[in-house]
Design a protein around this nucleic acid. Sequence first.
DNA 1: TGTATATTTACTGTCGACAAAGAATGTTTT
DNA 2: AAAACATTCTTTGTCGACAGTAAATATACA
Lengths: 254, 254
Amino acid sequence: MSDNFFGEPDAAGPKRKRGLGVVTAYSTLKREILELKIPPGSLIDEVKLTERFGMSRTPIREALVKLASDGLVVTLPNRSTVVAPIDFFELPQFFDALTLMYRVTTRLAAANRTDEEIAAIRALQAEYAVAVAAKDVSAMIEVNRDFHAEIARAGKNRYYCDLFERLLDEGRRLLRLYYSSFNYELPRIYLDEHEEIVAAIEAQDVDRADRVAEAHADQIVRQIQAYVVTDRRINTGLPLRGNARPSGAASKER
Amino acid sequence: MSDNFFGEPDAAGPKRKRGLGVVTAYSTLKREILELKIPPGSLIDEVKLTERFGMSRTPIREALVKLASDGLVVTLPNRSTVVAPIDFFELPQFFDALTLMYRVTTRLAAANRTDEEIAAIRALQAEYAVAVAAKDVSAMIEVNRDFHAEIARAGKNRYYCDLFERLLDEGRRLLRLYYSSFNYELPRIYLDEHEEIVAAIEAQDVDRADRVAEAHADQIVRQIQAYVVTDRRINTGLPLRGNARPSGAASKER
DNA sequence: TGTATATTTACTGTCGACAAAGAATGTTTT
DNA sequence: AAAACATTCTTTGTCGACAGTAAATATACA
């Protein structure tokens, strides 16, 4: 909703409902980190957030602790906390886990779905189609995440849901990194693959769900890999600019 | 180390090193929750912890936020926080995820292990053998967890490690629940299975690692299931005592 | 001028206190 | 006596302030 990061205070309300402080700071910061409004590697200044949200440092800190548990920020002891950098050397691990979770959650959804859940999944698939038609990349990224998260929820395994949502969120950051170089051909492929996934889940065909989910995961992994390679060629010339590592964004203070 | 829960203060030191407050409270409470020294469903009193650890409420609260992120405590808004109850209805989900993580981490370990990691794993296996010989159930539970966590670490996938450790910890609580009805025949079976797992990892045989890991997981799942069924027959007579649900322990204040 | 040391600065970790929300208790009314 | 209401009490969420730590800056020394 709010576009400001270093801008004017969010919570103009004179008094917030007791207990909403942490939730507000947490959800707002989480959204902004995942949407790259706060770039990876940024220093997080507690006092600035204090002024921005109009609350004390205590709820801000508790929100940061939660974000640290989610892996979205990293806390240096007695030093500032920074937004978790995107580590390209961890990408293979990420792809492996993402693919496995795609498969497992889709399998479970095929096994355990109810009719209501199929309806909810279909609704999100329709939303995704709208985003593709409108070429709204941002909406595509968000709805795609919600689509798969809904499938996972239909699988009804809390442990898989938690890990999968974490992976999907990390994927959101990656996709947004390559926002500009987005290929408008792929979303249509995804649309078809989504359709197959929904069909397999509706038919309660576990093996088929597994296959199409894996194919879909491969597709997405290849897309991101292509982006990374492309980006490396264009921007990340190590010897040309003296950067040691293409891991996190540099600080920008001073 | 410390056996007290409502006992004397832990941190008798006049001044703690700056920054250790949260870590102390977090790790201590986590250990006590996992060892069932603080039973599931217990109310957590912040002020009592304040007195016990000799620190302010702020670090205590931050520790509780972390524990909540780990799923070890549940926070009721504007109400007290309680130690996460053990939900028997979620057991099938737990077993499913646990089995998958056993397989995946062992596979990855077989693929990515170094010689040093094999040595570390073997050392823990030896420790386990000692615990079995001594019939030290508590040590068996702890070392078994460390053994598999070390294997996962050799697999070098952060996402799997995090989820697996969470599952292993939850398993610790379950096993301790049935501490008394422990069957001394099983640990020897586990010992042999561990041996096979280590051999497969050392031989870098991924498929074999997968098979033995799955067999081991099945064994453990069956053990816990047997315990649960047994326990239900003995203790959990719903209509006999008027309890609504066998989920969490009742409060004991007042 | 370059290096080592002292000082300042900025920010974090912690503390004690206050106020709101809910639970427990007491009171009034029918 | 039971129910509705008011009051007290306990506990949480939040606040402002202080002290310690590490970086940044200034100073001394070779």
